[in-house]
Structure formats: structure tokens, C-alpha cells
Design a protein around this nucleic acid. Structure first.
Lengths: 195, 195, 195, 195
DNA sequence: AATGAATGAGGATTCATTCAT
DNA sequence: AATGAATGAATCCTCATTCAT
């Protein structure tokens, strides 16, 4: 419980100020706990941030839903594949749109780290990209998706979802979440659907 | 000349280690100059990084070429518009593929800053996005590009180019630059071309 | 306790070397504590010095004594007023003569600061000058002190006590504290007593 | 001429910001000369400030006037002594009131220096105090001034003139220079005149 | 588990002074 | 004489991490 309390506070301050500009003191103050206790629950600042990222990964996966994910990965009916991809895309967009802090945690400092810390972050991305790639390969085999480098396609999808989401946190483009989701789904599917 | 010497060194170390992990001492050492001289040419660490970013923006714009850019913005022949967009996309991808440090400078720390520093970076992005948007609007009016939110389309294009480029700096996907460029151009144009 | 330890050390080194020539490292070394702990107890170097000044103000006020001060401010018997002023003068002189560091803290850097730091110091002086002025006005109303600009009179008294005290820290004039106090009391009262 | 140009600029900035907060760059900029040339005319920052102080001492002595000074020091007619002291006091007050920067140069950082620099400043003061002392001793011998420690008396006079002058630069007491001069002369002479 | 004091390395920035031209 | 680039020591302050209680 204490641990969750700290994580929740950390999420807020890291999201608001970024990894480097956030101090352990900020986190403790925000959580209303004492300074040193953070080190009881987490080895160090990076481990704390890592836990946060892991939590976000899990939350996103839960939100997309195993059913959708599995349908996308092991399609029976070809049309279901595309539907599943669509659903996953919308679920992902919806997840970040309603959880701005989650988006900031996962994307804000994404590449500004070094060494083994960056590695952890990188692995999270790679897992998602691997999943997207698997779905695309399955759909390619079913003939619903054009041939092409599936990994780069997967990168592209991840990049679009991530960056557009993040950009929308910073600027107001006057569009609703649905409009953006519609466009992105359209854009991505146009780009990859076989004709 | 000294200034350029420092900028070149700064580009190397910032690209290698990121903004936060780089110290002014690193830059000076890498440039083979004394510690304090950096502050003769640049107000502070952020100003140095800003100069770097500005330089990259200019270099990219030069590389894309005014001719291409203007053709994209003020099209005569509708088909030329699409050709120009294609050219700009390829030029941009080529620019970053042959200048990995430039990509790192512009994308690596892109959103991990705060306050007025982030603002400067943001403005650079917005300028490019504005240009892309203008090209898309022109093409939409010519009927070559589908209707839709041009600004989000522009975001998407920027995100794709930026993130895919950056990712390829970190991992080896076994593809040539041309293959990736082909795919991205295809993907983007499929996504936005009117049919 | 740690806080007092730091304050005591800071008093010694600031008094010895002045504000600008003293480093936080000097203070920490003198106090026998680690460098960073100073910043646990004080926001910054100026705040540390401010605390020191505030402490000296309090110590001096305590030393002069509420009784004397109140007698000077709310005199019943006119003659008592003059007696009280005399007592306050002697108490002040005695305070500084036996506490050279206190004198240095309050007078040494008195006007060499800028901005909001100088303001704090200035306020301390003004409070004392305000008190002296009040005493003089009371005595003027009782007819014991000549008419004249009470504020300038108060300035003058403060200047005499402060500067003469400070000068005596630097040079040896071969006089005892009592002799100097006698002279100053005489000088000041001659200057302001009604005849 | 160049030297005077630098001195004039230095006087302005040192008076405005104090010794420590003023940089050689500030002085050069204010003087409209290049950075390094200051070191052609002055050995270092302290030497520059010393020159400034020396200039002020000379200017003040000139302003008080040799005649007055000599009359005060070598009195013939006893009454003339007191008149001369009066004149010197008024001349001094007038000097500083019309030259606020001079007052700041001589008093602002008066005691916040260390070592051999402070020594130079100290010597200037001591010269004035010596002169005042000599005048007082002469007047004591003539019977116009009360017996007492002449050196402390001299200190007192210097302290009064200096501090009251300085304080008036910072606060507005609503009095004219003449009113303050009248009071100070009165105060000082009351304090020291034999009755 | 919890507190918050203590440590000290690290890093940005300033600026007096020197020096090549 | 003059310029302004170059040097590098000095110092403030931050903050991750440890530790005594």
C-alpha cells in the first residue's frame, strides 16, 4: 500500500517534470511520506522509474485486453484480424488519451537515458513492437496486409500512436479523440492494407 | 572557427550521451579547448544545445532544398506535388541516415526538457510540421491527397520519419536505407493519397 | 544543536573574513560538519548570514533589556528618561566590546550588499533607529532633549555607536571600554540634551 | 585621457553595484573600451578601486580647501578655530551631498575587504581622522574644545559625517542638505565645545 | 518499517587575469 | 596602446544515496 502510494506520487511528478528534473524529495513530498522510505521500497531512482514503466506496460496490455490481443495474434477469420488490429489501435489511443500521465511516463523521456536504464525502456518498446509485428505477419499471411518489412511497419505503427498521442498532450489541435483515432486507424490501415 | 570547433565537439558528445549526461567539461575536452572558453561563445549549456539544434534545422532545410520545398508548397502540375512530397521525404530520410548525430540531436531529448528550452525545440518541430501541413493542404486542394485533418497528418508524417530514423540508429533491422525509405514513402502515400 | 553548531562556526568565519571572502566550505570545515549539511539547515549562503544577523539583533535587544528599553520609551519621571538612554547606550557599547564578532557581523558588511539581502540588513538597522528615535521623541516631549530632527539624531547615535565600536576592533587607541563609553555618552548627551 | 575615461566609468559602476558585484567587464563596457585595456592602466581590480579612492580623497581635500584646513590646523584667533571646523564640516557634507557616487566609493565597501586592500582604505580614513584630531587638539589647547580623548572624538566626527551621509543616499528623510548640516554641526559642536 | 539528518561527489557558471596579435 | 580571445581556479548549490536511531 505504501509502495502504491509512492508509485502514484512518482507517476504524477515524473509525468509533470520529467525524469531528470524530478528529485526523490519531490516524490516523497508528493506522496506525503518521509524522505528515506523511498529507498526501502525501491533500490534507486531509476528502479522507481522502471517500476512505473512496467506498471504502465501492464496497464496498457490489460486495457487492450487479452481477447483482442489474442484474436489479433491467432486469427481464424481473416476479417477478424483487421477488426482486431483496429480494436487494438483504438484501445491504445483511448488508453493514452484518458491517461496523459501514462503517456508522459512512457514517451517523454523515452530516449534521453543512457546505458542499462535505456535498455529497460527499450525492451518494453520492443515487446510491444514485437506484438504488433506478429499481428502484421499473421495478417500478411492471411493476405489482408501488404507484403513489406513487418518490423518497420510495426515501428511505424508504434511511432504514430506514441508521437501523435504525446503531441496532443502539448498542443490543442481542436480535434476530438475520436477524430484523431479515426484518422490514425484510417491512415495506418490505408498504408498497410492489401488492395 | 573556434565556435565551429566547439559546436562540432558538442554535437558529438551530446549525440553520444544525451543532454543531461553531457557536461561542459566533456564538450571542452572533446573540442580540445579550455573549460571557460565555451562560455565565451555560448551563454550556457542550453544555449549551446539550442545553437546545435538550429544548425541542424538549417542543414536539413538546405539539404531538402529550396527548390523541392517550393515545388511542394506552390505546385503547378498536380502530379508534381506528389513527386515533390516524395522527394522531400526521401531527402529527409537520407539526411538523417547519413548523419546519425543530427538525428540524435534533434530527436533524442526531444521531449524530455522543460520550460523555455522545450519551447525552442518545440518551435523547430512546429516549423517543419507547418511546412508539411502546407504541402498537404496544397495537395488536398489539388485533389491528390485525401481530405482529413492536415495538421494531424503532418504530425504523423513527422513522427514516422523521426521515430523510425531514430530507432534505426539503435537497432539493426537488416534493411538498407533505400528499403526503409521505399516503405515509408509507400506507407505514407498510401495513407494519404486520394484514390 | 547541529544548527547552532553551524551558526557558531559561521559567525567566527564571517566575522574574520567578511561575507564575500567566506565560503560555505570554510563554514563547514570550521564547524566540523560535512559540506552539504549546511544546505539542510539554511537555504543558501545569504540565508545563513541573515540568520546570523537576526540572532545578533535578538541578542543585543535581550542584552539591553526590556526594562531599560521600556523605561526609555514610556518615561514617567523625566530624569529617568535620560538615565534610561544612558543605560541603553552603555549596554550597547558593552555588548559589542565584549562580542567583537557580533560587531563585525552587524557592521562589517553593512552596506556592501545589494538587492534583497541589503534590504534585510537595512531593516534591522531601521528597527533600532526607530527605537532610538522613539526614545528621543519621548525625551523631547519631556523637555529633556533639544528640538531637532529626531530621525537624524537617531541616525547619528547609531552611527556613533556602530562605527566607533567597529573602529576599535581594528586599532588600539589605548583606551578602556569605560573611557570610550564615558566619552560617547557625554558626547551624545551634550549634543542632544536641552540646556 | 583613456585612464580618466576608465576611472569615470569605474566610479559609476562601483558606486552603483559595489566592489564585489562589479566586474572588469562591466567597467570596460561602461567606459566603452575593450576588455583587456583596463589592465594596461591598472594592475588589477583592487588597484583600480584604490585609484578611485585616492582620487576621491584628493577631491575632498581640494574641496574643503587648503585655506580652511590650514586655518583649522594652525589657528591664530581662537574663534577662528571653531569657525574653521564649522566650515570644514559643512564643506565635507556639501561635498558628499552633491557627489553621491563619491560617498558610495569611500563608504560603501569600507570594511568589507580583507588584507592589504583594507589597509589602503584604512589609511585614507586614518589620514582624515588624523587631521580632524589635530584640529581638535589645537582647539583643546586654545580652550575652545573640551578635554577628552581627541582621537575618539575625531573618530566620532568622521563616523557621523560618513554614516549620516551614506544613509541619506538610501532613504529620504524629507530634510534638506542644509538642515542636516545645521543639525550635525550643532550636534558635534555641542558635543565638543567647552562651556 | 520509518524518519530525516548526514555525506560528498558532481557540475554549471563566473570572472580575474594573461596573452597572442 | 589596444583588442578580445583564452585560461582555469574558485565556488555555489543540488541531490542521489546512506545511515543512525
Amino acid at each position: 500500500m505504501r509502495r502504491e502510494q509512492i508509485l502514484a506520487a512518482a507517476k504524477r511528478v515524473f509525468a509533470a517534470n520529467g525524469f531528470h528534473a524530478t528529485t526523490i524529495a519531490d516524490v516523497a513530498r508528493q506522496a506525503g511520506v518521509s524522505y528515506g522510505i523511498v529507498y526501502w521500497y525501491f533500490d534507486n531512482k531509476e528502479a522507481l522509474f522502471r517500476s512505473l514503466m512496467d506498471g504502465e506496460e501492464q496497464a496498457l496490455r490489460t486495457h487492450i485486453g487479452q481477447s483482442v490481443l489474442e484474436r489479433a495474434l491467432h486469427p481464424g477469420d481473416p476479417d477478424l484480424t483487421v477488426t482486431a488490429i483496429k480494436q487494438a489501435l483504438r484501445a491504445t489511443l483511448g488508453f493514452f488519451e484518458s491517461r496523459p500521465d501514462s503517456a508522459r511516463i512512457l514517451f517523454r523521456d523515452s530516449l534521453s537515458f543512457s546505458d542499462n536504464f535505456a535498455r529497460h525502456l527499450f525492451d518494453i518498446y520492443e515487446r510491444f513492437i514485437g506484438d504488433i509485428e506478429a499481428a502484421l505477419v499473421a495478417a500478411q499471411e492471411g493476405g489482408q496486409v501488404i507484403q513489406g518489412p513487418a518490423r518497420i511497419m510495426a515501428y511505424s505503427v508504434a511511432a504514430l500512436v506514441g508521437q501523435v498521442t504525446l503531441r496532443r498532450l502539448v498542443t490543442d489541435d481542436g480535434l476530438t479523440t475520436d477524430q484523431v483515432a479515426d484518422f490514425l486507424v484510417e491512415f495506418i490501415l490505408n498504408g498497410i492494407l492489401a488492395r
